[in-house]
Amino acid sequence: MNTTTLDDVALVVKTMAVTALENEKYFSELDAAAGDADFGVSLAAGFQVVNDDWEQLDRSSIGNFLLKISMIITGKVGGCSGPIWGTGFMKAGLLSKDKETLQIADLVAMLRAGIDGIMARGGAKAGDKTLLDALIPMTDKLEEFVDTPTAAAQIRQTLTAVAEQAIETTSAWEAKRGRQSFTGARSIGTPDPGIVAIATMMRAINNTFDGAARR
């Protein structure tokens, strides 16, 4: 049985924050190709506060922790990313308000809630070339493990591969949402910054947990 604790969730979020801060310039450069070059700066602005306030964050439950993250991201991140990422964290947090541990089915439900929230917030759907096109296949894949007991490391490995594949697959698409979409056909051939960020974070989470396990 794969059980996720508050500490695990915190490590995931911490890794996302470190990844956002380390890749600020890189993520902005990706956004320069078809967007307005602020994606890295925006994400970093929010995760910097997460990082700075780390010790004081509400840890009364997994859900409350995620809701606090949501409030920071929403509050501090401008552009599309604030509402999109903030909504994702919020919806996942609401589903886990009273939880102290999570099973895979819980994780799937939280991810689905986040995805639905993002769709409702920004009007994007699968295929519009946004971070949803990483999150949806990752969630679909995770669901396959609900009834198929698998080692946590292997699950993480698989999800990382799915996310990285999404960069490849979607690069050839035309963006339909966000500022990228104004570029129309010119967005074809460039990877979507949001998808790259999700994949980069998933790869980092994978490495972090592997490292933690080995120690």
């Binding site: 307005d36 602020d38 700066v41 925006s42 929403t74 991140v77 401008g78 552009g79 604030g82 903030g86």
Partner: peptide
């Protein structure tokens, strides 16, 4: 106003 070409965050 947000940053250059960036909408202001919700809190603002």
């Amino acid at each position: 106003p947000g940053g250059v070409f960036s909408a202001p965050p919700v809190e603002y």
